[in-house]
Write a protein that binds this DNA or RNA. Structure first.
Lengths: 257, 257
DNA sequence: CGGCGGCTTGAAGGACGTCAAGATTAGTGG
DNA sequence: CCACTAATCTTGACGTCCTTCAAGCCGCCG
């Protein structure tokens, strides 16, 4: 288990650059980059258990750019693991203004914040071609009562989301926010086997700005300045981190403590 | 169950104004304002189950102003329900600056965000005289595998915390933040049987400001202006809401959608 | 009474948003 | 392959909301 990964499975649609993707998994080898990978990998979880977990998963996709995996106010029934592509979660207030809540890479879970209100509190929108795994939540909860490791993993995932949501709540400067954003992405890409210093932003500047609660113009300006200071190299949506320690110093307050 | 409440149990220390407090509970009548009240109240949860839940709870307190219920980086072992008084959670960065993460009233749960990192990611500090219930988390998790309602309630509590943490992340104005803060407090007090329009702020202006990511001076100024506009009446830490609809209009973007 | 912490009030400065225009890229169809 | 258009991104000038700094006020407790 957890052997190799990155089985290319995108249609030849627009797959130019290598694209993060989790392998498909089968009865014995569960999606290795999935949020539940650690559960499966845990000793003591036999083939039977793995089988049970696998049984309640439905693969879905492809979703294309702009498609919704779920929409706000839909009745909550399942959580989703991104299997390929990038997903953004967002709300739209009644004046029509968008608020980006997060970006989600392969292996990450979305929909956890829907448990409480029993309906999705946000839209989940594909930013490129996206595949997901759908976990029926009632079935998952039932399984969790039988397999403590699954329950523990759910608690862990939920708790981690609280921490994540807390991060951006601080009153950080544009520089700090952007540095933390870039380092965060880099780390998540690295965890999936990609370069930790060079990657392509899937989302528009406006989305980044919105997520960081900045104006799009500010994002442009800060990226420009970072480049002038030789912290990064920017070419459109391609980013290269040149001075990680300096960025880390900037982001320090947000990322670590 | 859920019969009467508000058994005064504070020492005569500084109990001048009526103070929110949850009743103590016994084997059959569990703390009625506790975060787990709804679980106990749920039909189908027999006396035996209630007994089991009650068994893993330890009462603790009194904590006095400034005391810590738990401290950052302590190993995670339990979540806590506030039973009386007010608790603030906060972090202190390495430059010594405080960041207030939340205020917690009786019946509310703290420590949920510690599950993931397996250690508390913040301090929990008593703002006045505080009593708490301590729920050993391993024991609770074990119980949750036996009683689905308990598991469900834990999922619900965790999920709700994600939503709460998300709220303040938006780029709201000082007016919007303060209006939402006051209405939020009012609602939570009301849910505990207290006036929804008049209450006493337990925390200092500086704490409010810090929590809302504003300067203390800004909080002063906005409260002053709210008073001039006849939205509220302020007398030191005593607050009266005079024009709830207007406040709601201000806070609308933050509170509801 | 005097001192101290919490709160208020005023004036000045800064960081970021807004507005507006231009540059670059991507997408489309001939 | 090349217009042509639309979307995205950049850059500059200006305005605004909030912070910062500084001083004064009030209530509390020794």
């Amino acid at each position: 288990m957890m052997t190799e990964m990155m089985t290319e499975m995108m249609r030849s649609d627009e797959s130019t650059a290598p694209n993060p993707i989790a392998d498909d998994g089968d009865e014995a080898h569960f999606c290795s980059t999935c949020a539940f990978g650690r559960v499966c990998a845990a000793e003591g979880l036999g083939k039977l258990d793995l089988h049970e977990l696998h049984m309640l998963v439905e693969h879905a996709g492809p979703y294309h750019e702009g498609d919704a995996i779920f929409r706000i106010n839909e009745r909550f029934g399942a959580i989703y693991a991104v299997r390929a592509g990038m997903v953004k979660t967002r709300v739209i207030d009644d004046e029509g203004r968008e608020q980006v809540l997060g970006f989600h890479l392969p292996g990450e879970m979305i929909g956890l914040n829907a448990i409480h209100p029993a309906k999705y509190p946000c839209d989940a929108i594909a930013l490129d071609t996206v595949y997901v795994c759908r976990f029926s939540f009632p079935a998952l909860a039932t399984l969790a009562t039988k397999i403590p490791d699954v329950q523990q993993e759910l608690f862990r995932l939920l708790s981690a989301d609280i921490g994540r949501a807390t991060q951006l709540a601080g009153d950080w400067s544009a520089d700090e926010r952007l540095a933390a954003f870039l380092l965060g992405l880099a780390k998540r890409y690295a965890a999936r086997g990609f370069s930790a210093t060079a990657f392509r932003l899937t989302m528009a500047r406006a989305d980044i700005a919105n997520y960081l609660r900045l104006a799009a113009e500010t994002v442009s300006r800060v990226l420009r300045r970072f480049q002038d200071q030789h912290l990064i190299h920017v070419d459109g949506r391609d980013i290269e981190l040149l001075d990680v320690p300096a960025l880390r110093r900037l982001a320090h307050g947000i990322l670590h403590e």
